[in-house]
Amino acid sequence: MSTAAPHERLLTRHSFIELPARERARAILDADSFRELLGPFDRLKSPWLPLQGIVAQSDDGVVIARGRIGGRPAVVAAIEGAFQGGSIGEVSGAKVAGALELALRDCERGHPVLPVLLLETGGVRLQEANLGLAAIAEIHSAIVALRRRVPVVAVVAGMVGCFGGMSLAAALCSTLIVTRQARLGMNGPEVIEQEAGITELDSTDHALIWSLVGGEQRYATGLADALVDDDAEAIAAQVRSVVEGVAAPRSEQVECYLERLAHIDPANPPEPRALRALWAREDPDGR
């Protein structure tokens, strides 16, 4: 994380959030090492959107790029949040799953490839429903298999955030990096309001929603590993700093979380602030 004084940081900062997916992938990879696979001119578009009168995008909203990170072979899968809310359809999901499967193949052959996921997604693309869900299950499977061989890094920068089945993908990664503009949750606020009523959650109460699923809260309660400023170089540096032998993935810490849940009274649940004390990070860095 940057140690420069706040005013210097602001002056030299290049927003990562404002970058489209392709430029995000470029920013994460070492200079001049970016090589895109299945780019726009390969025209692997959604076969399902035009059938429903929706304009498809030439890369289906996912950029797969090979290159190097800190000199090591890497692959980045970057989701374009501006296209269909970053939703996962058959093609975009297969691009992410396929890239992870090939990274696994190379790792198994003794040629490690570092996988990095740049997640900006509302989850399954409803127009491709069951094929999006199936692809997400395949992404989960690939992350779990790959994670044993090489750290799998996820970045949720914002502004779309990471929701639905892809929030599980983020949670399965070895290292999860967020910004203050990130949101990470399973169910979108509108869906919770629809399913459980406005007394459960008012989807227009933005302050409440950020307090529940915002990047700062996720980091403070140990549900994310790093909180980084919205700065392309700071995020790239954080990704580079991820090394082998990271701690046991959070999703394996079953007894710890069951114990924590046992202490929660659902009739009187902690407020977000109080949870920061209950689930305090073990490695507070003063932020």
Binding site: V144, L168, A171, G185, V191, A196, T221, L223, P269, P270
Partner: peptide
Amino acid sequence: YGRREELLGIHLACAAAADAYA
């Protein structure tokens, strides 16, 4: 679907189950 569930990381809980199956 709930406010408590989001706060307490239902996404991580479901990931843990998927992880354990995988």
